[in-house]
Design a protein around this nucleic acid. Structure first.
Lengths: 335, 335
DNA sequence: TTGTAAGCGTTATCAG
DNA sequence: CTGATAACGCTTACAA
């Protein structure tokens, strides 16, 4: 017997010890491949991350760390795939038995990888929620509720005109779930509180970001608007705007600079609430009131749910993590 | 024969076609485990990333993307490990043949994982350079040269008093290679140009970051200093400082804010040159003159070199990527 | 409680 | 050029 039956069947303490010694003496190490072959389990999870630049990177990394750490606790290793292989990547690792299950991120409302998952029957877990999550396991922050929370906070402080500075335009065009849900939540919140709302997508990327003060034109990508342009536009169209909700973490620094440059003090003249990891929120001056983006937790929960599913747990589920808003220095009551 | 000998030996067009049909008909997919067992090659690379918070995350992520993308070109998959397994992680994947080689990041001058690599004889590639790279393959940005470049640029613009705002103190305590080399390069550059230099570690993390303007004390971690404290200290001790070199990308936003708050204009009163990814440098207002951190390239080069080694390429080597400085809006001549 | 042997799906070797 | 057949190292079912 290949010894290390690690509890698979009753063993006498005698042989158990005998085996232990041999395993030491021979410096024995089970061969992962052989094991996978015989047991038809690879003990590997595949994590698929986007390689696009318009999704905020630190969040992805935190998710990955969370996934790897938690997976190890269950004895699994994690294979990292980028999304440029598309649905084929999933097929590849699944049908070659390189991985036992896949974890997807950056889920679109109508994600083309979902069909592949349904067909191939791989165990899968989505970090994010598609339009139709039937028969799928998903984890995500409750973005709609998060959005609502932001508006509510601002409304309670007396703000009547609010602008939502969202993700890059491409994100909405791709119908990425979290972006759409946030927007929906914010709109609902605005309607409920009766506050005036505008939504402006905003590029987080380089060239379009901010060129106020530097020589040069604003916005390099045709039709897209960076932080500078977005902000200017907002105050031009709605001069009475006093509340800002920001989801695109990449523009936060520019935004703060631009506000100061244009003579608007935070939070005296304008309040900002961000939807981002706490780390980011705490890093600015003043620190930002924010709804936290619990990236690591998303990763760990993903693995936990996936383990349940692989154990054969019955019902598929969409687990939404309730958002929580932390008041910091960037929001204040309006006079 | 398991058919798909993919060119391993001469085949007649006849059988080749016969095989192709069967492979289609049976929806055949080679089993990775079986293949690994028989060929004793897993076609997997292990990438080990730190999970510590004081190393800048976006850089890690970019490296990972670079590694995965390039690895796929060679038909390899990438296993993601965190460094909390330490040397054991390496041993585990190597001795179980889960991976054919490992790529290490966050290399310390005296990295304890190096001993493990030398002993176990795994093919390895370090992204970073330890004190003694003999017998090892390494890739890294030439940080010493990068540091020198920063000083030189500032010196040429006429700055005589320069401050280097470095990584968090813990990074130096751990003797992380890149941090030490940068410092060395900067010191050498300062000596060569005869400019006055001070070096100040700076926490990039949350609480210690900046509390100017917000109620509360500065610096939560005993003995460490955040952006606010660091900056204040610099101008208190050397009021004539006009040049800043920043390596800790996480503090850049706070730094810019703090400078503005304290009434110092960039680049009129103080020039800043950063050592960070272009994306970050372009995102601020004004955009930062910087020496780029070619993270993706580091990842791709790592894989390329590793492939050479696995092919059996002879000599070990340390490949240093020459740094390049891009002038943007944050540096100007001092009258 | 323990030994034995039959696969698991490839690759590699050795005759034809 | 091609078809068998023995490894590869482990799991697991089946006897003992």
């Amino acid at each position: 017997m290949s010894y290390v039956l690690s509890g698979k069947r009753p063993l006498s303490e005698a042989t158990r010890e005998r085996v232990r010694r041999s395993i030491e003496a021979l410096n024995y190490h089970p061969h992962a491949g052989a094991r996978a072959l015989a047991s038809s389990k690879s003990d590997v999870l595949a994590l698929i991350v986007p390689l696009r630049g318009d999704t905020y990177v630190p969040v992805m990394m935190e998710i990955a760390i969370g996934v790897v750490t938690k997976a190890r606790e269950f004895g699994y290793d994690v294979l990292l795939l980028t999304n440029d292989e598309g649905p084929d990547g999933i097929r590849r690792v699944a049908s070659s038995s390189r991985a036992d299950a896949v974890i997807l991120t950056d889920i679109g409302m109508e994600d083309d990888r979902i069909a592949t998952i349904r067909q191939s029957g791989v165990d899968a877990l989505l970090i994010g929620v598609p339009a139709d999550p039937a028969g799928l396991d998903c984890v995500d922050l409750d973005f709609a509720e998060a959005g609502r929370l932001c508006v509510e906070h601002l409304a309670q402080l007396g703000h009547r005109a609010i602008a939502f500075i969202g993700e890059a335009e491409g994100v909405y065009r791709r119908h990425v779930g979290f972006a759409e849900r946030t927007l929906r939540g914010i709109r609902a919140g605005a309607a409920a509180s009766g506050v005036d709302l505008v939504h402006r997508p905003c590029e987080g990327s380089s060239q379009a970001a901010g060129t106020v003060g530097a020589a040069g034109a604003v916005g390099t990508l045709a039709g897209t608007v960076g932080a500078a342009g977005t902000l200017a536009g907002i105050f031009r169209e709605r001069p009475r705007t006093t509340g800002l909700i920001v989801q695109n973490e990449a523009v936060i620094p520019s935004l703060m600079s631009l506000l100061r440059t244009s003579g608007r003090a935070v939070p005296e003249d304008v309040s900002i609430v961000a939807l981002c990891p706490d780390k980011i929120a705490e890093q600015t001056v003043p620190p930002l009131t924010s709804v936290t983006m619990p990236a690591t937790e998303l990763g760990t929960r993903a693995v936990e749910l996936l383990m349940l599913r692989m154990i054969g747990n019955g019902a598929h589920q969409v687990r939404l993590i309730p958002p929580s808003l932390t008041v910091r220095g960037s929001t204040a009551a309006i006079d």
